[in-house]
Structures are given as structure tokens and as C-alpha cells.
Design a protein around this nucleic acid. Sequence first.
DNA 1: AAAACTAATTAACACCGTTAACTTATCCAA
DNA 2: TTGGATAAGTTAACGGTGTTAATTAGTTTT
Lengths: 211, 211
Amino acid sequence: MGIKERKSRAKEDLKKAILDAAKRLFSEKGFTATSMRNIAELIEFSPTTIYLYYKDKNEILFALHQEGFRLMQDKFSALQHVEEPFERLKAMGRMYLEFAEQNRDYYDLMFVMEEPVELCFKSDSEWEEGMTTYGGLYQTILACQQSGYFKGFEPHGLSLTIWSMVHGLCTLSATKRLEHMVDKKDMIPGLVIPKRTYVFETFVKMLERIN
Amino acid sequence: MGIKERKSRAKEDLKKAILDAAKRLFSEKGFTATSMRNIAELIEFSPTTIYLYYKDKNEILFALHQEGFRLMQDKFSALQHVEEPFERLKAMGRMYLEFAEQNRDYYDLMFVMEEPVELCFKSDSEWEEGMTTYGGLYQTILACQQSGYFKGFEPHGLSLTIWSMVHGLCTLSATKRLEHMVDKKDMIPGLVIPKRTYVFETFVKMLERIN
DNA sequence: AAAACTAATTAACACCGTTAACTTATCCAA
DNA sequence: TTGGATAAGTTAACGGTGTTAATTAGTTTT
């Protein structure tokens, strides 16, 4: 009786194919610009077929949102081998910036758009991916404090401060504010590295100089 | 020959009416959710009339974008009377947070959405409102440094770092990440103030403890 | 063989931003 | 004063959107 299983596997495959098509189109033209009909065309099914597998467009967004967090965690897991906690913290920051830059579409979904986050919490259970991701930062901050950094700070407040800073930098950079709003020309003479890198390094210097 | 003037005044009025209607609808239902037809209905003109006054929807966004910056500058001008520079800096931060919270729609337009910022720089002249707004922060940072704060930091790097942090906090809070993604329950025991205020105060403490 | 279930489709609804063509009113010069 | 230009606003239409209802075709079960 493998027929039923073959069919349910085929259904799973189609569901995955929809997601892959959506992902490809989203990263090519952005979320709002890609339509259900575009996705349908790519998988060579009729547009309404998608609705047999996903309740609506937001549910597709949510599925990719989850995939984004898994992707990010994969990327970050490599950093668990950096022993020195403050070094690890800095590496996490750089990696976060890199992830945001290289996966603009995922980043929007994960940390900017409102639609997917609503689906995370309408069932009021804990949201695992979110907690795990934040937990990685929090644990590193704790380790930093055990190594003598950031004395006298409450660790959650510190984690959220650092996250806010790096997130703000990512979004200002992605939305062109960092380069354009302030100054196109040589505001900072002799600056050769990207402005976001420069600002990040300034922040690191700030963290190093907390007494 | 006041007739011509009366007519051109009427045209100006209508242009303003379109903007007001757009503003109202935008703040009620958000940008993408309000259509040209919605705006038209509110001003009791046909939808296509709007195109006689604004090239397209983005041009309306841009006009409101500009209004947002004027509004922000008005709000901030009150702070020029705070003499002590670091006090002024802190007050600016609090006010920025407050502005973002109370004018979510403007804030999105000014610092999050991509569409309006493109119109700012397609003519590659300097963009006055942007420079003025940033300039307010930069001058305060300079004043802080003259009073002995933040020694050894390049002031632009510092300004952008602080801006990134506060902007990040505003957006994480507005998009529900701050409250929901991390922890619904008492992550920080005994926290009574809003989380964004708490994080802001942590950042201030950080700035105060730079040696 | 008939009935029930399943997967996918077509057709349709009510929107959207925007453009072209048309109407109506006003103005100005001959 | 009349005719043509000019201006302001409208209607109709195009090609798109997310989504739902009704329908077909194919398979499975009774």
C-alpha cells in the first residue's frame, strides 16, 4: 500500500516546489512585486492550486520567514567555536550585518515586515526559532560578563541594546539612508571601507571602552 | 485681474486637500492599504484628478515624507534650549523615540520605506531636510565632545552609531519584535516601564560609562 | 457500476495604479 | 461677438492584484 504514501509525498513535493518558486521570485523582485500568479506560472500550475497548499500569501511569507531563521542559525552555528566571548560577540555582529546584506529578502521577512510575525504569536505558545536566535546572543553576553566585560549591566537590556544597534545599522544601510541621507561626498575624509562597516567598528570601539 | 490668482489659489487648495486626505487615510489604514480611489472618494473628485496634481502615488508619498521632516524639526527645535549638551542628546533620543511611536506612518515614510528616498536623490543636489535633521544630531555630538564626552571618537561615526541604535530600537518596537520575539513573560523580573524605554536607558548608561 | 472523495481547473469578484480619450467650461484675440 | 485655444475634470479602459465559488476530471471506495 505504498500508493498513498507516494501521493502524499507528491503533495509534499508540490508544497515545497511552491515555496522554492516563491523564494526565487521574492529574491529576484521582492515580496510585494511577486504575485500568486507569478509563482503559479513558475511551477506550471494554475494560481488557485497554491491555495490548496497555503491558506494565503501570508502563509507563504511565514513559511519562508521560518526558513530564514533556520538559515541564520546555520550560519551562526559556526561561531560557537570561537572561544573568547567578546571575540564571538564581535563575529556575531559582523555575521549579522553580512546576513542582512546578502539576504535582504529574508531579513525583511524576519525583522521588518509585520505580516509574518503575527502568525508567530496568534497561537500564544512560545516561538522556538525566535527564542533560539535571541538565546545565542544572550548567552554570549552572559559569557562576556563572566569574563569581566560589561560589569553592572543587566544582560537582557544589554542584549537588546546591541541587537537594536546592529539591526538599525542593517536597515538604515539597506534602505539607503546611511549613504544618501547624510552625505554623498567625503563626510568622513579618507573613508575607504563601506560606511556600515565603519559605523559597526565605531560601535565595537564603544563597547570596548565601557568601564 | 485677481481672477487668475483666485484660480491658482484654488488649485493650491486642492493640491493641499489631496495631501490632507492622503495623510488621514495613510495614518488610518497604512500606505499600501490606501488607494488612489480612496483618496479621490474622500475629496469627492474622480481618481484621475489626482494625477493632475501629483505625477503618481510615490509623489504623494514624497510630499508627506517632506512634511514629516518638517514636523520632526518643529518638535526638535524645542530642545535647542537645553544647554548641557549631553542632556540635550538624551532628550533628543527620548524625543526621537516618542516621535516614532506617535507618528508611525510618518516614521515609516521618513526612515523605512524605499520609495520616497529615491525621489530625494534622483536630482543629485543636496537634500536639505535630511541634512538639517542629521546636522542637529551631529552638532550636539560635537558639543558633547567639547564638554569632554566621547573623547577620541570621530564625531560622524559616533552620530551614525547613536542614530542606528535609536532607529533600530524604534523599528524593532514598532514591528512587535521587541515585545514578542524575545519573551512575552517576565524576562526581566520587575520591569514596569515599556521595554523600549528600558533598552533606551541601558544605552544611555552605556554612553555615560564610556571612558 | 455507482457513489464518494480528491486534485486541479476555469470563471469570476472586487479591487489596484495608471493612461488615453472625451467633455465641459473658461479665456483671449480677431 | 464669435471662434479657437486652453484648462480642469470626467469616463472608460488596460493590465494587473489576491482570493473565492463552481466545475471538471480522475481515482478510490462501497
